[in-house]
Computed example of a mutant assay.
Amino acid sequence: MNRVFRHLLCVLFLVGFAGAAQAGSADDDYEFGVLFNDTGVEETFIYCAACHSERIIAQQGLTREGWIELLEWMVLDQEMEEIEEPDYTLIIDYLAKNYGVDRPNFPSN
């Protein structure tokens, strides 16, 4: 099975799983787990949660340069597909703003 197809299957599974996990919550329509709702959240969730929990994202606290280095490491060492523009910039902007060193949106639960 090629990598793009596997990636798509993972995304579909995780989106479905996240939707099921949100059932019964106050905001049944929110699909992005613990990620803060801001510009770029959808792209970040789709690309990142295809391989790991969105909680791993939210628990970080990296500078913009740190996020760039982490994504480069994932591509070079973890065989993640490169993220094309404009999604790459949306994701980096989202991560730097919402999950920087001060971690303003660190999940409380």
Rank of each mutant, 00 (worst) to 15 (best):
C48S: 12
P104Q: 03
R55T: 04
Q78H: 08
A26E: 03
Y30I: 01
G66M: 00
E54L: 07
D87F: 02
L14M: 09
T44V: 03
F17I: 14
F13R: 03
A26S: 13
D87C: 15
A23G: 11
L35I: 15
I46V: 15
R6P: 15
L12Y: 09
W67A: 11
L14S: 03
E31N: 14
E85N: 08
V75A: 15
D38S: 00
P104E: 07
M1F: 09
D102Y: 08
R6W: 13
C10E: 07
K97W: 02
A58F: 10
L70H: 07
T89C: 07
L35T: 13
S53L: 01
G40R: 04
M74G: 15
F106S: 04
I46C: 13
S108M: 09
F5V: 07
H7L: 08
F106M: 02
F106Y: 07
I56M: 02
E82A: 09
Q78Y: 02
E43N: 12
A21D: 03
D102I: 15
I83V: 04
D93T: 10
E84Q: 03
Y30W: 06
S25F: 03
L9T: 08
W67I: 08
F45M: 06
M1Q: 14
L71A: 10
L71S: 03
Y47I: 12
A96C: 11
T39E: 11
M74Q: 14
Y47T: 10
L70F: 07
Y47S: 15
E69Y: 04
L35W: 06
L95K: 01
A21H: 02
A26P: 01
L9I: 06
F13C: 14
S53R: 01
G16A: 04
F45Y: 06
D28G: 08
T63C: 13
Q78A: 13
E72Q: 14
F17W: 08
K97R: 03
W67N: 08
M74D: 07
W67E: 12
I68D: 05
V34T: 03
C51K: 12
L70A: 11
